[in-house]
Amino acid sequence: MIKGILNSERTLPYVLMAPLLVLLFSVTLFPFLWNFYVSMHDLKTTNLQSGAPFVGLANYFRLFRDPTFLHSLKISSYFVLGSMVGQFGLGLLLAMILHYHPGPARVFRVIFVIPWILSALIIGYSWIWMYNYRFGLINSLLRLVGLRPIHWLNDIRMALWALVIANIWRGTPFTMLFLEAALKTIPSEPYEAAKVDGATSWQSFRYITLPLLRPAIAINLILVTMWTFNLFDTILVMTKGGPANATLTTAMYMYKSAFEYGLLGYGSAITIVMLLINALLAVLYFKTIGRRA
């Protein structure tokens, strides 16, 4: 009987998929669905034991009247925009350089990738140490050239940009690798033809590389947007959303609501709204992949 199931070409694939599906169901899909349930209850750390009342969509209505939540959307968009501009600009530049200079690429690529695979905690602490007012490397360099040191993470106007710099540091390698891989898929014929026609390198970049790269760029931008929007581990380590909520992104506010204020249901509602934003981006993602294929 069991042998039959294992040997039948019809049933075997399902058997092989089963462990994965069971695991994914229990640690991803089921919690994900439970989230909707939680978000419709006023679940708090203060009624975790006694049971939370059902409140329907009240958490969602409350969200859009909550000035802190709206503020967090604003902060998130600055954070995403700043990170994206930096990561994409530098990433594209590096990808082009590595692609057209395969000689040094091998050495530099492995250096550039390092930040991408370090833990959020280590990244956070490294940058706290870099930004330290008295002992940080950045302020030391500023003093060296005669500039005033800056309270990077404590200053309301600076903190978000300090985080953006750290995030660019962390995320640029991904964009670089992604776009470099995409460049490799571009055939060489169009360039040769362009060369024959006497096109400058800027022209061939503008009229050949960019259009052919466009789908990859679109996917890259979407992924970066999603990840940056959802990111909160390094923010949690570095500023916890402060000073004066200057770095309170939506993801950070979700964490704060759920685990600092103890409002689990409300936190769940925030994650659902975040998810909707993600879903919107995912639709774009599939659309661009579809267009490429």
């Binding site: 708090k44 203060t46 309301i156 000073p243 004066a244 600092e260 204020y261 103890g262």
Partner: peptide
């Protein structure tokens, strides 16, 4: 129970006035 939220809101007002 809501003290941490209340304290955050009051501190925000102080920052707005002072900064």
């Amino acid at each position: 129970p809501q003290w941490s939220q209340v304290a955050d809101a009051i501190f925000e007002a102080m920052q707005k006035a002072i900064f």
